[in-house]
């Protein structure tokens, strides 16, 4: 399997505060990876480093073998999209325009072409009826689905999800997870930070447990949920399963 992203000895500190100590991870093409771990373990920080929203303070991240710091950041980000907990839709644009404008400005697509692409993905996330709505007029689940369509419209190789359902009311979690599940089947490479254990178990090829700034344990969902090796993993999972 072709390796799309490889993380080698990644470190990240904020001042004296070391958040990522030594993260190692390799992501193959088409793989769906769930990242779990307690609050503050550095999941978001790792994801943000992959997208270069944070600059690593040590180690290397490679995209298809090349150090991402040596790539054009803008161009690299078109290959590695991101979906945020807080959606971050452009408040000054309609749902459709959110998906169209980045294609025009970054990929230099013609508007007509960009609209075709955008409509296709908006349809895929089941939001066709709302293309003219402003973000402020959408529910959380609807916003997140448009945010996913926006990321897809750039035709990325990889999408990073940072707790895509954590800011949603419980009744909207399902609609967003369904969209992500359907993407998993299309061969898109995905890294999903999540607290939804059932989802992680169902869709991921591999589950990563992060703790204290490192990847403490990784394995298939069956291995990691069924037979966790490390005491910390067991403790974390039992806390989750027992509510």
């Amino acid at each position: 399997m072709e390796t799309v992203i490889s993380i080698e000895h990644l470190e990240k500190s904020f001042g004296d505060h070391k958040v990522l100590l030594d993260v190692n991870l390799s992501v193959g093409k088409g793989e769906v990876i769930s990242v779990i771990g307690s609050s503050g373990s550095g999941k978001s920080t790792m994801l943000r480093c992959i997208n270069l929203l944070e600059e690593p303070t040590g180690g290397v991240i490679r995209y298809k073998g090349e150090d991402i710091l040596s790539l054009n950041t803008s161009k690299y980000r078109t290959h590695v999209g991101m979906v945020f907990q807080q959606f971050n839709l452009f408040e000054n644009m309609s749902a459709l325009e959110n998906c169209v404008r980045p294609q025009i400005k970054v990929l230099k697509r013609k508007r007509a072409e960009a609209e075709v692409v955008a409509r296709e993905y908006i349809d895929k996330v089941g939001m066709s009826a709302f293309i003219n709505a402003r973000p402020s007029q959408l529910s959380g689940g609807q916003k997140q689905r448009i945010a996913i369509a926006r990321a897809l419209s750039m035709n990325p190789e990889v999408i990073l999800f940072d707790e895509p359902t954590s800011a949603l009311d419980p009744e909207m979690v399902g609609e967003v997870l369904d969209v992500i599940k359907s993407l998993a089947k299309t061969g898109l490479t995905m890294i999903v930070v999540t607290h939804e254990m059932a989802f992680a178990r169902e869709v991921s090829d591999r589950v990563i447990f992060m703790d204290g700034g490192i990847v403490l344990e990784e394995g298939t969902p069956t291995e990691l949920f069924g037979n966790p090796k490390k005491p910390r993993t067991r403790e974390f999972l039992s806390r989750f399963l027992n509510g």
Partner: peptide, 18 residues
């Protein structure tokens, strides 16, 4: 303006100026 607006724009490859 919420920092998320910038990050959303960066995440699709826009430069700071864009």
């Amino acid at each position: 303006i919420d920092k998320g607006q910038f990050e959303g724009a960066y995440s699709v490859g826009m430069t700071h100026f864009q």
